[in-house]
Design a protein around this nucleic acid. Structure first.
Lengths: 206, 206
DNA sequence: TGTACATCAGTGAACGCGCGTTCACTGATGTAC
DNA sequence: TGTACATCAGTGAACGCGCGTTCACTGATGTAC
């Protein structure tokens, strides 16, 4: 369906992604985005009820970007590992992928987390969260964790990587040497995984 | 030194704490705070160079509030524990205190973390961080952890409690039953502690 | 003790800014006969 | 195939708002002789 502009709706979302990449959610203004697209401010109201609707639309896109980063990291896992070790590596990839996105795409990451505020509406499961669930299920399937150990393991995992991402992004680690932060990221992820009950032998010896 | 108003500087900071308590950093405006104190907007410029200076002054106060919450939780520890178990309990108190402040005083917590952005100036060590360092040192002193295990343990600890605080405050746990969140908080904190290498026997069996 | 003076905390008014949103409209697109 | 019409995406101008900050000032406080 192509009218005057072409497809203003997706044009605005794309402009939003470009703006949010460096400026985060604060950079998503009606005037700012319509200006970027070359259109009058109120033209946006043909496609979005108000500013918040536009922000949520952009935020939904960033969710997919986070999930993609996790996938990329997972597909880089060496295929010659035992099932148990491979399952552990997939969980590490989920965590390190999350941290990696946060550090390299600060603005998008901020926006992706913002979607979580959506509330009790409980729309669909966000793609990155689904990958975490799958990775944890994989540890049970390969006999690394018992059902009891796995139960509720999402929260310690998500808490740790999210917290580290925030420390590295807006907190005391933000001006540290990136290589040092890399090393700490790996350390932190391995610490939670060990805390879940995964035997140390299944973690990569550093 | 008491002039016309009395002490406008501290009056503004106190008004800032009251405003930030519910509204966070966004509630700290020059006009909003001077209005609350009953004074002209530009009167504030006698005491603060600009808005940012005022915000940082208020944020520094909130750091102390977080440290106080940790202290309170530590002083509630039963005194009849073995040195090792007591040391573990102190670390738990630091983590659970951090999470507790975040959940009960959202606005103050946001502001306290904001101070971390200060940058490479590296002013003084923030009081809550110092308590974390002390608790970890206590684990070495009581023989619970080796020097190697303790080294850099600040980051997994802080990451986990900070991330959980964010999930419970702005994320998917924000509308959950508070008792469920309490239980998860304890679970999450114990998970990192175990991940550090603390034997499970030293953790409270649930 | 009393007067003249300097200090400086706070006043009153205004600056320019960018924001989200609403109004009545125009004119290109697609549709019906 | 051609004309009349309805649709509706985008225009242009304006609304009210609250913000941070600057200007020249006033008048209460403290100080020197």
């Amino acid at each position: 369906v192509s009218y005057h502009h072409g497809d203003l709706r997706t044009a605005l979302i794309e402009a939003g992604l470009r703006a949010a990449r460096s400026g985060g959610a604060a950079a998503l203004g009606m005037r700012e985005l319509t200006r970027a697209v070359g259109v009058t401010p109120n033209a946006a109201y043909r496609h979005f009820a108000d500013r918040n609707a536009l922000v949520l639309a952009v935020a939904a896109e960033t969710q997919d970007l986070v999930a993609r980063a996790m996938h990329e990291r997972m597909s880089a896992i060496t295929p010659d590992l035992s099932p148990a070790r491979a399952a552990v590596e997939r969980l590490r990839a989920v965590g390190l992928g999350y941290i990696h996105v946060a550090r390299t795409e600060r603005g998008w990451f901020e926006l992706a987390f913002l979607t979580q505020e959506a509330g009790p509406g409980a729309a669909s499961i966000p793609p990155p969260y689904q990958l975490l669930v799958d990775a944890l299920d994989g540890l049970v399937a390969t006999g690394v964790l018992t059902d009891g150990q796995r139960d509720g393991a999402e929260w310690p995992c998500w808490s740790t990587v999210h917290g580290f991402a925030d420390l590295a992004t807006r907190g005391p680690l933000q001006h540290q040497d990136p290589r040092v932060v890399d090393a700490q990221a790996a350390r932190v992820v391995d610490t939670v995984i060990r805390g879940l009950g995964v035997p140390t032998e299944l973690l990569p010896e550093d």
